[in-house]
């Protein structure tokens, strides 16, 4: 099963857990699996149409999923997904 790694700053949404095994053949299914386990993540980071909030980005191994096939990026058994806050701004 793929693993989703949760950064320290988001672990209060996952009962303190850092590594969460999820089911799914692609990123969208893996995120659905994660949100079923931790509904507050869905409330806070996904818009109604299922899109990620701008403040969150997903990295598969070392690549942003936006640079791959987005939510439809296929996952292998031992893949590692990371949820990261987007850090951006400016005057």
């Amino acid at each position: 099963m793929p693993t989703i790694k949760i950064p320290t700053t988001l672990r209060h949404y996952t009962e303190g857990k850092s590594d969460i095994l999820v089911e799914g053949k692609n990123v969208a299914e893996a995120l659905d699996s994660l949100c079923q386990k931790y509904p507050s993540l869905k409330k806070n980071f996904f818009r109604k149409e299922g899109l990620l909030e701008a403040s969150i980005q997903i990295v598969l191994n070392k690549n942003l999923i936006n640079d791959l096939q987005g939510n439809q990026t296929p996952l292998k058994e031992n893949d590692i997904l990371r949820i990261l806050p987007t850090i951006a701004g400016g005057k």
Binding site: T8, V59, K62, R82, L84, I87, A88, G89
Partner: peptide, 18 residues
């Protein structure tokens, strides 16, 4: 007038904080 942080730097910072 703009900034962003690369994903690898975010991962490194998070691991170093931990």
């Amino acid at each position: 007038n703009r900034y962003t942080v690369a994903p690898q730097d975010i991962i490194r910072a998070d691991e170093d904080a931990e």
